[in-house]
Nucleic acid binder design. Structure first.
Length: 990
RNA sequence: GGGCCUGUAGCUCAGGUGGUUAGAGCGUACGCCUGAUAAGCGUAAGGUCGAUGGUUCGAGUCCAUCCAGGCCCA
């Protein structure tokens, strides 16, 4: 005020400036605004309008991995869907027809449980409900939740065919899944085998791991000795080539000792011994032959008895067997054990078979005897060891068939000679007489050397709370290693397909390959109600699977029209078998397909069946857990039926952790729901969080991180806002590129470079790169450099100024590029920006901005890199002046810049350097740097001394110039501003 | 316990084939502006590159071991 001339009040020129003018708010209010944009997209039927718009373009298909229709979405689901939307939107804007059809996984156990629970609440038991009534309830349950999730996905901004998604429970899908299964049946890849499952005798049902809980339980324990039957020549040779001299007396002694010794096992389930078929040993454990030297008179283990035991467990075993003294006689290397076979302890009582010793990594030497009794029908590990050795067993003349020793009623079958009809577990869930009978028989056979009781954790049914047992049951398998007639197997085809698939990140390839290499045959049957049945008939006499195209066609047609419920209707068997087959001979299988087979078939009933999609998909995208899940089952299904993978590329993302990098858990209270983030910040903030992370690794989320994302968003939003405000004054001129100032050409060059970079990053699904690059660009090159410099020209230049027109053209172009590039990541905000720019048509229909590749000018960029280095010296010098309070704003300054390198001097002289450093004037001097002036070590040969700007301050532009008042009409303005005012006032007068 | 993966400033990320004082943006502190104003500009602080050993003239980058964390198995 004190500086202002008291006599004449200077005119306020503010409203003669072209200041930014926009209604685009600084604060987005995303939680409130976003639903409005979703409504507008619904109103214009965006999904179908996009299909129409892009009809005829090359298709790009991301095939959706179906989430389970059960419960609200969580942060991981949100991440997954947002990433998919990035893929789809970016490819749409790259010029493809990127058609996304969401899907849902609807069958399966968790829904069955919920429905069962609901029935129980009404006092009805599952067994009392007709199967199709139960299935109807499950269908409704899934329908309800998929509707909820559908709304939640759309709230995230995801575009796709939400009016017509695919559902694994739709009738055509159920028909499609059954048809796929029948392909496996007719091509002989499907076979009936058996496998131990957890079984509740009380409920007469198989249980999944999630359906059991562990409680204390008292078990009988036994130490049982198996007589050695034979030691093969290979084992003998192994021994003779061992540590001692070949063929020494020592070796012969060991052999003799071994043949007389017995292998000791320890078990808590004596009732499984009739099912014993092998003994497992640990390949890394050291074993020895021990001889009892003293024991009580009536003891089971007597002096002179020899036992084979793990060395670290011998002492404990002998204590348990009440042996008073013993001695160790020999080392027994595990290479020898590999060739040893034993007799079953009940040999002579109907158990006349060879019991091989098998290596097993599950065997430890911290409890038991170091040998594990192996009953393949009664334990998962037992089963696996047995199956791994199946080929060798057959070669050795051992029947690999797994006996069904216990029936559904918990009683021994004829496969357990001598015990038939005895109960393991009674209908009431109590211990039956099986254990006692087996123990008595063992004692009688002289095989028992110790017994006891043990309290331990044992699985119980979570419904009845009664103990469960492992029991061999018939199951359906898809063979991994069967020759499919062309020399290939399902495994070899799948491995081949993996080699031809692109993985993002690349490590996914190894991970999937490792799993396929080692996986056992695929068990596809479940003893369940809610799913697609295994639609095959089996000959009751021969076990042969019916292969009849007409029967299969009837099944497919019925499912198409009525759903898979048709399989469970009265008279279904006769209906499908038709005239040609007798339902009395052909058994209808009532097992349900594993849900992984359902989702593994989506490529068939969705991709292949929908005319608007294509097979194979360009890409599948899921969490890294799906290497074992959907990527895996889809690969096997497709390789078994079509010989290749249903995808060309597989993208995986990691898991979302809490802020400290640990797993989120309800008990730790560090979970964060997408709904809360949307309510507090908006979906675009959640999306920007996804975009700014490396999704291929695990991500973190939490308060601080979200705050950081919101900050970054705000900064970006303000730059967009400034462009919108500036462009309010844009009259749309398109100056020739060559006529534009270098600064504009520099920015256009940057766009040309970024154009390639952004498109390339989108093509490799690298959203982090897009987000970081563009935000960096907006902050460093636009907000802090280009915009800052050009404010003077944009605000003050005359309406006709070519410099102003060039700047407006450039801002306009920058805006179009930036907004379209960011649209896949921030669809709400970019739609809002687009609309604020006056576009009537949604940005969803736009492609990435067209950038003229001719704008690229690397020489110019290199030149300006030098200019900016000198600029840094000047801004540094200005900072010192500010600190010393000699200047306030940079327009008060007049730097004198001394440059030693003549070439560099010429470069700087060639640009409007005062504009570039935003000072009123600048003087460039050739010569060595002034030691008294400001310099930067990283910019040698350049110094800057800052003087106060001379002249008078222009009341309009605030620049100090010597020509203020040169136009008498505007005594307080510089010549440039006076001319601008004359133009403005003239226009106003006209 | 096994397979695959990750660990660089407070936060999010860059750092081809090992080579000068490890970079960016955001945030923070301080200053400026008050014509992008619950904004804009500038300056500065901030890292034993998870740890330890090794290879090498030289390692964030290669090797080994360990620690922490994740997914999938057991």
């Amino acid at each position: 005020m004190s500086d202002a001339p008291a006599s004449e009040a200077t005119r306020d020129y503010s409203d003669t400036l072209f200041l930014p003018k926009t209604d685009f708010p600084m604060r987005a209010g995303l939680p409130k605004q976003e639903p409005g944009w979703i409504r507008s997209w619904t109103d214009l039927d965006l999904y179908h309008a996009l299909r129409k718009e892009s009809a005829g373009r090359e298709k790009f298909i991301l095939h959706d991995g179906p989430p389970y229709a059960n419960g609200h979405i969580h942060i991981g689901t949100a991440l997954n869907k947002i990433l998919k939307d990035f893929v789809v939107r970016s490819h749409q804007m790259l010029g493809y027809d990127a058609n996304y059809v969401p899907g849902w996984d609807c069958h399966g156990l968790p829904i069955e449980w919920k429905v069962e629970e609901n029935f129980r609440a009404e006092g009805r038991s599952k067994d009392a409900i007709p199967v199709n009534e139960f299935r109807r309830e499950c269908r409704e349950f899934a329908q309800k939740w998929l509707a909820v999730q559908k709304a939640e996905f759309q709230r995230l901004g995801v575009v796709g065919d939400f009016d017509d998604p695919y559902l694994t429970m739709s009738y055509p899908a159920e028909a499609g899944i059954a048809r796929e299964l029948m392909k496996f049946a007719t091509s002989d890849q499907l076979y009936r085998g058996s496998k131990p499952v957890m079984w509740s005798v009380v409920e007469r049902t198989a249980l999944a791991e999630a359906e059991v809980e562990y409680h204390d339980y008292q078990s009988d324990t036994v130490l049982v000795a198996f007589k050695i039957a034979n030691i093969d020549t290979k084992a003998i040779n192994a021994l003779r080539d061992g540590p001692s001299e070949p063929g020494t007396e020592e070796d012969e002694k060991v052999l003799t000792d071994l043949l007389e010794a017995r292998v000791v096992i320890w078990t808590t389930t004596p009732w499984t011994l009739p099912g014993n078929r092998a003994i497992s040993y640990g390949p890394g454990i050291s074993y020895g032959v021990y001889e009892v030297t003293a024991a009580p008179a009536e003891n089971w283990a007597k002096p002179g008895d020899r036992f084979l035991l793990a060395d670290s467990l011998a002492e404990e075993v002998f204590k348990e067997a009440r042996v008073e003294a013993y001695e160790r006689r020999d080392d027994v290397p595990t290479s020898v054990l590999a060739g040893v076979t034993a007799h079953h302890p009940l040999a002579g009582r109907g158990y006349e078979f060879t019991v091989p010793l098998l290596p097993g990594d599950h065997v430890t030497d911290d409890a038991g005897t170091g040998f594990v009794h192996t009953a393949p029908g009664h334990g998962v590990e037992d089963f696996e060891v047995w199956m791994e050795n199946k080929r060798d067993l057959e070669a050795a003349g051992i029947d690999p068939t797994i006996p069904y020793t216990v029936g559904a009623d918990g009683k021994y079958t004829k496969d357990a000679p001598g015990f038939e009809g005895l109960s393991v577990i009674t209908d009431e869930g109590k211990k039956g007489e099986a254990n006692k009978a087996v123990i008595d028989a063992l004692t009688e056979a002289g095989a028992l050397i110790g017994r006891g009781r043990l309290k331990h954790q044992y699985p119980h049914s979570w419904r009845s709370k009664k103990p469960v047992i492992f029991r061999n049951t018939p199951q359906w398998f898809i063979a991994m290693d069967k020759d499919l007639g062309d020399g290939s197997t399902l495994r070899s085809r799948a491995l081949n397909a993996i080699d031809r698939t692109q993985f993002v990140p690349a490590s996914g390839q190894n991970r999937l390959r490792g799993m396929i290499e080692h996986r056992p045959d695929w068990v596809v049957s479940r003893q369940r109600a809610w799913g697609v049945p295994i639609t095959v008939f089996v000959n009751k006499n021969t076990g042969e699977i019916l292969k009849d195209e007409a029967v299969n066609a009837r099944i497919g047609a019925a499912f198409e029209a009525e759903g898979a419920d048709a399989w469970f209707e009265e008279g279904a068997a006769a209906r499908f078998l038709g005239e040609a087959y007798d339902p009395a001979v052909w058994e209808k299988v009532d097992d349900i397909l594993d849900v992984w087979f359902d989702s593994g078939s989506t490529h068939a009933f969705c991709l292949e069946q929908r005319p608007d999609l294509k097979w194979p998909a360009d890409v599948y995208l899921e969490g890294s857990d799906q290497h074992r899940g959907w990527f895996h089952s889809s690969l096997l299904e497709s390789c078994g039926t079509r010989g290749r993978a249903p995808y060309d590329a597989v993208i995986t993302h990691g898991f979302t952790m809490a802020e400290d990098g640990r797993k989120m858990s309800k008990s730790l209270g560090n979970t964060i729901a997408p709904q809360n983030i949307i309510d507090q910040y908006g979906a675009d903030i959640l999306r920007l969080w996804v975009a700014s992370q490396d999704y291929t690794d695990d991500q973190r989320i939490g308060k601080e991180i979200l705050k950081g994302v919101a900050d970054a968003y705000r900064k970006l939003r303000n730059s967009i806002r400034w462009m919108l405000g500036t462009l309010a004054h844009d009259s749309g001129e398109t100056p020739g590129f060559a006529t534009m100032p270098e600064l504009e050409r520099l920015m256009l060059h940057r766009l040309a470079v970024l154009d390639g970079e952004v498109r390339e990053a989108y093509r490799r699904y690298d959203y982090g790169h897009v987000a970081h690059t563009l935000m960096n660009f907006a902050n460093v090159e636009l907000s802090a450099f280009y915009f800052d410099i050009r404010k003077d020209a944009l605000y003050c230049d005359a309406p006709s100024s070519p410099r102003r027109h060039a700047a407006l053209f450039t801002v306009r172009t920058l805006f179009d590029a930036l907004v379209t590039w960011l649209a896949p990541l921030l669809p709400f905000t970019m739609e809002e920006s687009w609309a604020a720019r006056g576009h009537e048509r949604s940005i969803n229909f736009a492609l990435f901005a067209t950038i003229d590749p001719a704008w690229r000018d690397d020489a110019l960029a290199e030149k300006w890199e030098k200019v900016r280095r000198v600029r840094r010296v000047v801004t540094g010098a200005l900072e010192v002046e500010r600190r010393e309070k000699r200047i306030r704003g940079s327009l008060e300054a007049h730097p004198v810049v001394t440059i030693a390198d003549p070439a560099l001097l010429a470069v700087v002289e060639g640009v409007d350097f005062a504009d570039v450093v935003i000072t009123s004037a600048v003087t460039l001097v050739a010569g060595e740097p002034d030691p008294a002036a400001f310099a930067l070590p990283e910019v040698p040969g350049v110094s800057a001394a800052v003087h106060h700007a001379e002249g008078t301050r222009c009341a309009r532009s605030w620049r100090y110039t010597s020509d203020v008042g040169s136009d008498p009409r505007y005594p307080d303005l510089s010549a440039r501003d006076a001319a601008a005012m004359a133009e403005i006032d003239g226009a106003a007068a006209a």
